[in-house]
């Protein structure tokens, strides 16, 4: 009995020590010498990691590499309190020269903005606009309302009356709400009919089940608005189950329009499954954010201090010319 207990404790202790040793191999190097003052260490804090975030991170890393900067990355798993702690660690314990942030929550990031200001560390917000934009050094985001509007115009440009299922992202995310509102406004102005709104919470299963239910309740559906490319597989599955999945050009085809321009969206356009995609200019986020960090570090104020970059459309007609500009088609 005693031997077994001792053994158990020994194994447990070894496990912890082993894990810590494992951690050490992942240490990020910080090759910033005193002589290279214009090469910065930049802390990057994201709300979460997924395809788009990985692409945004790659864009930042590419832009940083071009300038010789070092990136120190953390992800908050959609926890606002965790993000505040991580940014505090970046600024105070790791003494980064600037932070680039995708906020978990546009209001609750305010305390981190205040901390950065107090410590004179440039604070750069990307992707999600933050409420306290006045105290941010620089902000570059997409324009969710314009993007939703662009998607609506694509749907309205298709011939015939439009009867639409509108998928909606998480209602606590203002990017989702903006895309919804922009789409709805433009559709109402153009005479389309939103027959069903499907709340998805950005969840694949809810998107699938909700779309399946809506397709059953409304057989006249001929258009589906999908507010992010990564929900596309769910919609395709629902269409397939309802026997309504057909390529562009087939009379049975349901017009599909999405936003983001990720690799799935790009492939679906090529495969003639998706009609239109509003592409978010993620590459620009990275370049402009890193530029702003250098401008601010040299003591100047980036101007303009905020930028909202609307997306552009890639569709069946223009894909040959636009795919080179679409981030999802690059990989």
């Amino acid at each position: 009995m005693k031997l077994r207990s001792t053994l158990g404790i020994a194994i447990g202790t070894l496990a912890i020590v082993g894990m810590l040793a494992g951690c050490s191999t992942a240490t990020t190097s910080k090759p910033v010498g005193a002589s290279e003052k214009d090469k910065l260490t930049i802390g990057v804090s994201f709300d979460l990691l997924n395809d788009i975030r990985n692409a945004e991170l790659d864009a930042i890393k590419a832009a940083a590499k071009a300038k010789g900067d070092t990136i120190d990355f953390v992800s908050a798993d959609q926890d606002a309190q965790k993000q505040a702690s991580q940014i505090q660690d970046l600024i105070q314990s790791k003494s980064v020269d600037a932070v680039i942030v995708i906020a978990v929550n546009s209001d609750q990031i305010a305390s981190s903005v205040a901390l950065a200001k107090a410590k004179s560390v440039p604070f750069i917000a990307i992707d999600r606009a933050i409420a306290d934009a006045g105290n941010v050094t620089f902000q570059i985001t997409g324009d969710p309302i314009a993007d939703g509007g662009l998607a609506a115009k694509e749907a309205l440009a298709a011939s015939g009356d439009r009867t639409i299922i509108q998928l909606v992202g998480a209602l606590t995310d203002q990017n989702a709400v903006g895309r919804r509102d922009g789409f709805t406004k433009e559709i109402e102005a153009g005479g389309g009919t939103v027959a069903a709104q499907v709340p998805t919470d950005w969840d694949l299963t809810k998107a699938l089940d909700g779309t399946a239910n809506a397709l059953q309740a409304n057989p006249a559906i001929n258009t589906i608005f999908i507010p992010s490319d990564y929900l596309l597989p769910s919609v395709e599955s629902a269409l397939k189950a309802a026997g309504r999945l057909a390529p562009v050009g087939d009379p049975k085809h349901v017009f599909l329009v999405t936003i983001d321009g990720d690799p799935n969206g790009c492939k679906a356009i090529e495969a003639k499954l998706l009609d239109s995609d509003v592409v978010t200019p993620i590459g620009q986020f990275g370049v402009q954010a890193i530029d702003a960090a250098h401008v601010a570090h040299s003591g100047k104020k980036p101007s303009p201090a905020t930028a909202a970059v609307p997306g552009f459309v890639i569709n069946q007609a223009n894909q040959a010319s636009e795919s080179s500009k679409t981030w999802g088609c690059a990989s």
Binding site: A15, I16, C23, A26, T27, D72, D77, S93
Partner: peptide, 26 residues
């Protein structure tokens, strides 16, 4: 500590779970 070492968030999650499990077992 894991933040300072620059561990990915998913690795941090696994380590945290393992530490809790090890402590509970001991």
């Amino acid at each position: 500590g894991m933040n300072l070492l620059g561990l990915e968030s998913y690795d941090q999650q696994a380590v945290t779970g393992a530490v809790i499990l090890a402590a509970a077992c001991i």
